[in-house]
């Protein structure tokens, strides 16, 4: 009975917190601080909505708490280094390694 109870509790925790956990990495040729942008596209890409953005230092971490859906995770710095990934979220926390590259 005890293992079943533990399993139920851990499942509930996962449901209550969906989103993205990320860590930011960039080569030395990029600038230190990175802006991480989270948006979604509506109406078959006719409208783009920025939900939130956060400044993260190199090797830093961040977390976005989100409803399930299709999102666009973008990261950039002032020297033109970039990262872009589409993230499909269900009822869980997805871990993303944000590695910028020089364009």
């Amino acid at each position: 009975m005890k293992p079943l109870l533990i399993l139920l509790l851990s499942t509930t925790t996962a449901w209550s917190a969906s989103g993205i956990k990320g860590s930011v990495h960039s080569p030395d040729s990029c600038s230190g601080k990175v802006m991480v942008w989270l948006s979604l596209d509506k109406d078959n890409y006719k409208e783009r909505l920025l939900l939130m953005h956060t400044e993260v230092p190199k090797e830093g971490t961040f977390q976005f708490y989100l409803k399930p859906g299709n999102y666009q995770l973008r990261a950039s710095d002032k020297t033109g280094c970039e990262f872009l990934e589409r993230v499909k979220l269900t009822d869980s926390v997805k871990t993303v390694k944000v590695t910028l590259v020089k364009k």
């Binding site: 802006m35 942008w37 948006s39 409208e47 783009r48 909505l49 920025l50 939900l51 939130m52 953005h53 400044e55 973008r74 950039s76 002032k78």
Partner: peptide, 19 residues
């Protein structure tokens, strides 16, 4: 700031605090 120039370029609602 640099991030405002980029934000304006990519996101129509950038000058708002959220959706």
């Amino acid at each position: 700031p640099w991030w405002a120039t980029q934000g304006n370029f990519f996101y129509p609602n950038f000058n708002y605090p959220g959706v």
